[in-house]
Simulated assay, not measured.
Amino acid sequence: MKQNFTVRQGTLDGVEAFLRVAQYRSFRRAAAELGVTPSAISQAVRALEARVGAALFIRTTRSVGLTEAGARFLSRAKPAFEELVAASEVARDLGQRPTGLLRLTVPRAVVPILLEPLIASFCKAYPEVEVEIAAGEELVDLAAKGFDAGVRMGQFIATDMVAVRLTPPFPFVVVGSPDYLSRHGRPERIDDLRQHACLRIRRSNGSIAPWSLVDGNKTVEAIVSGPLIAHDFPTMLGAAVEGMGLAQVPAPIATSLVKTGKLVQVLKSFAPMAPGVFLYYPSRHQTMPKLRAFIDHVKGRQVAAGKTRVHVDDKRTRGTKTR
Rank of each mutant, 00 (worst) to 15 (best):
K2M: 09
R8G: 15
R25G: 00
F27M: 05
A30D: 00
L34E: 07
L34A: 06
A44K: 11
L48D: 01
A54I: 06
T60Q: 06
T61M: 15
R62E: 01
S63E: 14
L66P: 01
L66D: 00
E68W: 01
F73G: 03
S75F: 03
K78Y: 06
P79S: 02
E83F: 11
R92S: 04
T99F: 05
L101D: 10
T105Q: 15
A109W: 10
V110D: 13
P112L: 08
P112N: 08
I113W: 13
L114R: 02
L118H: 01
I119V: 15
V129I: 07
A143R: 11
A149G: 04
G150A: 00
G150S: 02
R152L: 11
I157Q: 08
A158V: 00
G176Q: 09
S177M: 09
R183L: 10
S204R: 15
P210G: 03
P210T: 04
V214M: 08
D215V: 03
S225L: 15
D232P: 07
D232H: 14
L237T: 07
A240L: 08
A254K: 09
L267I: 10
L267K: 05
K268I: 11
P272I: 05
A274W: 04
G276P: 05
V277T: 02
L279P: 00
P282I: 05
R284W: 14
T287F: 15
R292F: 06
V298T: 09
V298K: 12
K299R: 07
K299I: 07
A305C: 09
H311Y: 09
D313Q: 14
K315P: 11
T317H: 01
